[in-house]
Nucleic acid binder design. Sequence first.
RNA 1: GCUUUCGUGGCUCAAUGGUAGAGCACUUCACUCGUAAUGAAGGGGUUGUGGGUUCGAUUCCCAUCGAAAGCUCCA
Length: 654
Amino acid sequence: MKITLKDGSVKEYSQPMSVMDIAMDISQGLARAACAGSVNGETVDLRTVLDKDCELSILTFEDEAGRAAYRHTASHVLAEAVKQLYPQAKLAIGPSIDTGYYYDFDCESFSREDLDKIEAQMKKIIKEGKELEKFTLPREEAIQFMEERQEPYKVELIRDLPKDAVISFYRQGDFVDLCAGPHLMSTKPIKAFKLISSSGAYWRGNEKNKMLTRVYGTAYTKKEELKAYLDHLEDIKKRDHNKLGREMELFTTVDVIGQGLPLLMPKGVSIIQTMQRWIEDEEEKRGYVRTKTPLMAKSDLYKISGHWDHYKEGMFVLGDEEKDKEVFALRPMTCPFQYYVYKASQKSYRDLPLRYGETSTLFRNEESGEMHGLTRVRQFTISEGHLIVRPDQMDEEFKGCLDLARYCLRTLGVEEDVTYRLSKWDPDNSEKYIGDAAVWEETQDRIRKVMHELEIPFTEEVGEAAFYGPKVDIQAKNVYGKEDTMITIQWDALLAEQFDMYYVDQNGDKVRPYIIHRTSMGCYERTLAWLIEKYAGLFPTWLCPEQVRVLPISEKYSDYANKVLQQLRDNGIKATVDLRAEKIGYKIRETRLQKVPYMLVVGQKEEEEQKVSLRSRYLGDEGMKGLSEFIDEICKEIRTKEIRKIEVEEKAKS
RNA sequence: GCUUUCGUGGCUCAAUGGUAGAGCACUUCACUCGUAAUGAAGGGGUUGUGGGUUCGAUUCCCAUCGAAAGCUCCA
C-alpha cells in the first residue's frame, strides 16, 4: 500500500499499518507530537489501521483537529479524576471547544477548592501515564455495559445513536467513556492544563432538563503557552466594556433604577451623539427620510403585527386586558409605526422606493439573567429603518442596505472583525413563521444571489430568521469570544399583507410592496460597547468625548490657556482646560490615563510666541507648533474620521 | 428563568462573632512649578436591603435587590 504524506513524499508498506506506526516510522519526534491523523481529509484516530492507498497527514497540537483530540483526552482525564473523587457523579458529555474543553457531570456543584483538588487528581492520573484503549460494542451490549456502570446519561446517548452505528469506547485504567474519539495514545503527553471554572448547564441544552455541573478547562502542550493563555484571559478583562466603560465614566447602573437600564454619562453620550449625527447625515445623503413615532401603542397594533401572539412575554405591557379599556405596550420595534406613516397617503409605483429612517428607542423585557453591560439591555436606541420597495427594486435596495452597513463598519474601523450570516427559517418548525415554504425558499435564494454578487463571504444558519422573513445578520465577537448581532438586514415579503399596505402600479392595480427592515449600525449602546473593547478605550479622535486638553504650566498662564481653549472650541473641537495648581507632570499623567488623544502644554514660551506645545498619544512630545496649524490638522483628522495608529506605549496603570 | 460565586466610603481592596482600615479620588492650605504622581491637613462608611440566631452580626442562617461567569433565550 502507498501512503502519500503531506509533503508529497510516498511511503510504501507491505502490511497494514496504524497511523501511529507510520508516525513512528517517519520520526520519533513526530510520533511524540502526534495527536490524530487525517486520512484523505478525514480526521481519524492514531489507532486507525490503514490498509489501502491514501493521503495521510499526522496531526499535532498545531492542527485544529489535533488540538481537539489532545484536549478531548484532557477532558477524559478530568472525568476520570471526578469519578475517583466523587464516585456518585454521573457522566454526561465532555467535548473539546475552541479554548479548551469541558465535561458535564450530574453531581453537586464544585467550588474553586474542589476544582483545585480535581486538578491535583488529574496530575496524578497523567503522571501514571495510562494507555488509552479503544474498543467497540454492539448496540445492546453497549447499553447494558453503561447500565451496569450506572451511567444513565450515557445510556440515553447510546439509545439516540442510529441503529447501525458502531459504538466505540475508550478505556484508561478503570475509567471507560462512551466516545467517538479520536484520542491520544496515552494520558502522558498532557503537559500543561488548568481547570478554568465551573457552572451549570442544562442536559442536552434544554432548559426543561436537569441542570448539570459543567467544568471548563484548557490544555496546552507547553507550560509557557498555558501561561500565555491565562495572561491573555487577565488582559482581555481590562478591555471588557462593562469594566472599562464604567471606569471611563461612559455609563453606570443603579440598583433602584433596574436591570438592563444603564445610565449613559456625559462622555458616553458624547460618543453616541457623534455617531448618531454621523449616521443620520449619512442616511440623508442616501435618500432616507426621517420619522419620529410613539414609544408605545395600544395592544391592537401588536395584534395586527403578530407580536402579541409571537412576542408578548418580551414586551412591557401597561395595563391589564381584563380590567382596563385600553392596554398599551412599549414598543419592541419600529416596523408597524413606520408602516402607518406609509399608509397615511396613497402611494404610486413612482413613489417607491421609500426609505424611512428613525433613531428609535426600543424596549424589550429580557429575562433577568440575560442582561449584560451595554450589550443586552431592556431599553436601547437603534438606527432603525424600513424601506418600502417594489418587488423589482428589491435586489438593488437590499444591496444598498448592505453597502450602507459596510460603510459604517469601515468608518468605525471594525470591518475586519465581523462575519456575515444568512439567517434562514426552519422548515421543520414552520408554525414559528408566517407565509409558505415557496416564499421563504425564493427570498432566501435571492439574498444568497445578492451576497454572491457582492462577493461577501457568509455562513447560513437554520432557524435564525425573523418570523416574517430571512435576514442577513452581521455578527461580531466580544473580548470573551461571545458573538452578538451588530447589524441586521431583513427581507420581508409578508408583512405588507398583514398591514394591508399597497401601491398603485402603472395599470392602476393595487400591489403589495416588499419591505426591508434594517439597521445601518447596531444599536448605539451595543456599538459603544464594541468600540470600547475594540479600541481598549482609545477611540479614534473623531469619536473621543474629549479630543484636546489644554494644560497650563502654572496658574499664571490661565488666561492664555483659556484663549487657546476658546479657539479650539470655536473650531468645533471637543476641548477642555486643566487650570488646577498641579505640576505639569501630574496633569499629563491624568490626561493620558483618561485617554485624551491630544494635550497642548502652554507656559511662558508658548505665550510669548503665541504657540502651543503638542503632546499626542500618537507621537508623544511633538514640540512647539502654531495653534492654527494644529487646529487644521486635527480638524482634518476629525472630518475624515481618520483612525490613526497609536505609536506611543501605554504605561501600565499602577 | 436556571446553576455557581459575589455585594465593605466615589473607585480598588483589607479586616474580625466584640463600637470598620489602607491607597487612589474629594475638600482646604502651602508651593506657581516645563512633559506620567509636590507636600501637609481634613471630610466621608448604621459593611446592598429586610428579617432571624446571638449578650453582641459587617462576619452565621433565610428572604429580597443588584453584579459576574456559564446555560437557556434574543421576535
